[in-house]
């Protein structure tokens, strides 16, 4: 009996947490199918708001930008982050023991701060015209740390002697990387890529600072639309973005359960 009651409480608590997290999101999803211009009352089911999205060239343009930036930023961040993660695992003494802190700082830094400092850096130091390139660099910057940490956790969970064994059995350092290290790290690297992609697609704060005037991403486009009113079209695009994010996060946490599900 006691145990049954205990598990009932556990279920109730879990339900409350999920409600807290997902109820506001559910409202958006529900109203994206509402056959009314106002987010006030349920009138009837429709998918026409998704249809209007396809006719909205500004929206499509923003989506294309977001997709391009996310793929490019995630690719570069994955390569750099993997190298950083391997370096962090290999050199744990001397000056390089500070490397993890340095690589992870952008992860913990307030986005506002990162946005401002990147803006200053691009304009005052590099004299770069703000646009796709500046957004790309900014997204790479905050993604590297995530990839590095996932890769490092995966490496830390492995028996280091397998890399020595590969060398011992005749593999050069490059062959060791290709045949042993890379295949074993691959799930972590993919998870890092998906995380970076997600972070890039969803990012608003930093992007606002470094986007300049010409280029819009999906979150920026949504923001500029709700300055007028939260239209059902915004609900629809938000729902799609949410679905994409959840799918990618779920996929990533399946690939790297040790880091992303808190499992050792």
């Amino acid at each position: 009996m006691a145990r049954a009651r205990q598990s009932l409480w556990l279920w109730a608590a879990a339900l409350a947490v999920y409600a807290f997290l997902y109820l506001p999101l559910a409202v958006v999803v529900i109203f994206s199918f509402n056959d009314s211009l106002l987010n006030a009352e349920w009138v009837g089911f429709t998918t026409r708001w998704y249809g209007t999205l396809l006719d909205d060239t500004e929206m499509l343009n923003a989506a294309a930008n977001s997709l391009f930036i996310a793929i490019a930023a995630a690719s570069v961040a994955t390569v750099l982050g993997t190298m950083a993660g391997m370096a962090m695992q290999r050199w744990r003494a001397g000056f390089l023991r500070f490397l993890p802190v340095l690589v992870l700082t952008p992860v913990a830094m307030p986005e506002l701060l990162l946005g401002v400092s990147l803006l200053l850096f691009f304009r005052q130091v590099l004299d770069l015209t703000l646009g796709l390139i500046s957004i790309l660099i900014a997204h790479i910057t905050f993604s590297i740390g995530f990839v590095a940490i996932i890769v490092r956790v995966r490496l830390a969970g492995m028996d280091e002697s397998i890399f020595e064994a590969a060398r011992d059995l005749g593999a050069s350092p490059w062959q060791t990387f290709r045949r042993v290290t890379l295949p074993l790290l691959l799930p972590g690297i993919l998870a890092g890529f998906l995380m970076s992609f997600t972070l890039s697609v969803d990012d608003f704060v930093i992007t606002v600072f470094v986007a300049g005037v010409g280029v819009t991403t999906l979150p920026l486009q949504i923001y500029s639309m709700i300055k007028v009113a939260v239209s059902p079209e915004v609900n629809a695009v938000s729902t799609l973005l949410m679905a994409l994010t959840l799918t990618l996060i779920a996929l990533a946490s399946k690939l790297a359960p040790d880091t992303l599900q808190g499992r050792a």
């Binding site: 397998i162 020595e164 064994a165 059995l169 042993v180």
Partner: peptide, 27 residues
């Protein structure tokens, strides 16, 4: 190490977990 005609059996065995027995031995 890869150029020395010396091979090692490690305490942890250090088998490659992503390879089958045959792939490990043929490595």
């Amino acid at each position: 190490p890869e150029k020395r005609p010396v091979h090692t059996v490690f305490q942890s065995y250090a088998l490659f977990p992503h390879m089958t027995v045959a792939q490990n031995v043929a490595f």
